[in-house]
Design a protein around this nucleic acid. Structure first.
Length: 291
DNA sequence: ATGCAGGCGCGCA
DNA sequence: TGCGCGCCTGCA
């Protein structure tokens, strides 16, 4: 991989397993919005970034090499060999073989744990456009203003202290619906107990999820997503309706319960369960499998 | 128009 | 332990 800086952009030439559409539309993030030219603009780590692929070049716009090295290399998990991960999964069965080819450019982003906690509480029984809107509203109302990109204003995701300044009613006014009380309770819980969610990364997967389940609004599926996307717990397997459908289509009986599907998958895919989940989810949702 | 979506908490056996 | 139910809100 060749990396160089040019005109406020960092260009990655010959980077393997990197496709913006796959990365930003495989269900792991809500703040990356597709632009008319097919690029994606998002906010992470308090920075605005625009990402575009042309052939074997990835353009990271609105950044520089210093920022790339300190932030984006890690955020996009560029130190992990996804070719190797896919090869292991592809050798397991024909379904993963197809799913890995289909979502060949997926990478699991290393996102902020606190942001994932609130974002996935919002995701419960909700649709992606609504989730995106709610997170955008919360950020605009309670997060710090970062700046403009292409004439649009961008705001950082609010810290626990910033979000806790909002009342339950004000949180609901941001289109969070009945999840307002979960968000308020969680923010309050973290601020009053002076908890640092990022430390959950150091716990083992079971303990990490057990701690997450203490928060109001966090159940099995949401807890798994926070652990996988915000705390690098790759040996877990979030089962949402799409994953349930694809698992029932390919692996298990129609009447198998969600917790049993989860256990089945963790046993089967082991250390790579989280990666398998992402390839299967993207495959199922894009193709409408089991709908 | 009603039913339902990338679940959760609750009440009840 | 396990299940059924209601829930914001927008959209088909």
């Amino acid at each position: 991989m060749k990396i160089y800086e040019k005109d406020n952009s960092v260009i990655l030439e010959g980077v393997a397993d990197f496709e913006p559409k796959h990365i930003f539309e495989c269900g792991q993030c809500f703040r990356w919005i597709k632009e008319e030219n097919g690029s994606y603009t998002g906010v992470a780590k308090g920075k605005i970034l625009n990402v575009y692929r042309e052939d074997n070049k990835i353009y990271l716009n609105n950044t520089n090499l210093e920022e790339f090295n300190s932030i984006w290399y890690n955020y996009f998990d560029l130190g992990t060999n996804y070719t190797e991960i896919k090869n292991t999964l592809k050798n397991m069965d024909e379904y993963l073989d197809k799913a890995c080819d289909f979502g060949w450019g997926i990478r699991i982003l290393k996102q902020d744990g606190w942001e994932m906690l609130i974002s996935f509480i919002i995701s419960s029984n909700n649709r992606i456009p609504m989730i995106q809107k709610a997170i955008e509203n919360l950020s605009r109302e309670y997060g710090k203003y970062i700046g403009q990109y292409n004439g649009k204003d961008y705001y950082a995701f609010p810290t626990p202290q910033e979000l806790n300044k909002a009342s339950q009613e004000e949180i609901r006014a941001c289109q969070t619906g009945f999840r307002d009380k979960y968000i308020k309770s969680t923010a309050e819980n973290i601020v009053t107990n002076n908890e640092n969610i990022s430390e959950y990364t150091n716990l083992n997967t079971d303990e990490c999820i057990k701690q997450l389940l203490k928060f109001n609004g966090v159940g099995p599926k949401v807890g798994d997503c926070i652990a996988l996307f915000g705390m690098q717990k790759y040996d877990t397997f979030p089962v949402d309706v799409w994953v349930k459908r694809v698992m029932q289509e390919f692996y298990v009986a129609e009447d198998m319960s969600l917790p049993k599907i989860r256990t089945f998958a963790i046993d089967k895919f082991g250390e790579l369960a989280g990666f398998a989940q992402q390839y299967l989810f993207y495959y199922a949702r894009e193709l409408g499998i089991g709908r």
